[in-house]
Design a protein around this nucleic acid. Structure first.
Lengths: 157, 157
DNA sequence: TTAGCTGCAAATCGTTTGCAACGTG
DNA sequence: CACGTTGCAAACGATTTGCAGCTAA
């Protein structure tokens, strides 16, 4: 969805189109990776001096409820991203450096073995973390340490 | 690990064995599912009137660092559980009702297709949520609504 | 006009820290 | 005895709420 479409959608649901919401729509339409509430606040703060955090949170919640953005809980906090355009069931690769996400259609539930038959499966989570092609090259070439965030420590499991 | 072993391990690393730590060891040795810091605090508070939350957090961190317990981040907060006894790589089924976890040896990474070859995989997360045999029977029989916790809302994805 | 938004301030929740007293080894 | 551990109080960061003024429709 581009900024226009997001605005359209919000408008069609009776929500008011404020300057903040226009900026939010543009931000998420233009951003591939994840944004923390603070990222959003900082970005919007550039254009609106009197911005407050609660407005950011309120709008993120509205946009999450509408399905415009998706909320993810990582070990280092909550992040938002524009809703993935894949319509069928899928999962994601997450770049630990640039935070780009790449959809992948493979789903382990189609092939899984070993689930006791008396266990009633409701849902599942499958996420792969690593380095995308450009970030991988970058780090092998220059051994750079400019990771945008200290990422979640994981008990390999 | 039983309570004895946990105590042993802590002692062998030079940590002091206080009453609180004995209680903690017993609690995690006896608990199959997850415990929030609050759960732990409530349980320990039964035996130690002057207990403070910071001691709970400090000890949970110590035990997590030592690998006695494992920390998981769910959408409704952080939870701890005694470290799984499976030694080889595995994943888990999570009961949404009783919070029991069942290890499963299947790993999707062995069969996965569709990961771009220039993506360098570092780690992954695979978790299945649903109802275990006893909880499933319970709910179909009595349509009970006594879920211990409101669990994470999930964007089926 | 008016219901929905916003900013502000304050409250809340979960978690961490400094410090002095205490208890284990 | 000495150092690790605890409780307390206070700080902290993230998020939420009540409220009065503002503004899009």
């Amino acid at each position: 969805m581009n900024a226009e479409q997001i605005i359209q959608l919000m408008s069609s649901r009776g929500l008011r189109i404020t300057d903040q919401r226009k900026t939010l729509a543009k931000l998420f339409a233009d951003t591939e990776g994840y944004l923390t509430p603070k990222d959003v606040y900082d970005y919007m703060g550039k254009q609106y001096s009197g911005l407050s955090f609660d407005t950011v949170y309120r709008n993120l919640r509205v946009m999450n409820d509408m399905g415009i953005v998706e909320q993810f809980v990582f070990e280092d906090g909550v992040k938002f991203r524009s809703h993935c355009e894949e319509h069928h069931h899928h999962h994601h690769l997450f770049c630990l450096n640039c935070e780009k996400t790449i959809p992948i259609v493979y789903c382990p539930m189609t092939q899984i073995e070993g689930v006791p038959e008396d266990f009633e499966v409701v849902r599942h989570k499958f996420e792969i973390f690593g380095y995308c092609s450009s970030c991988k090259d970058e780090s092998t070439a220059a051994n750079n340490s400019s990771h945008k965030h200290t990422h979640e420590h994981h008990h390999a499991h």
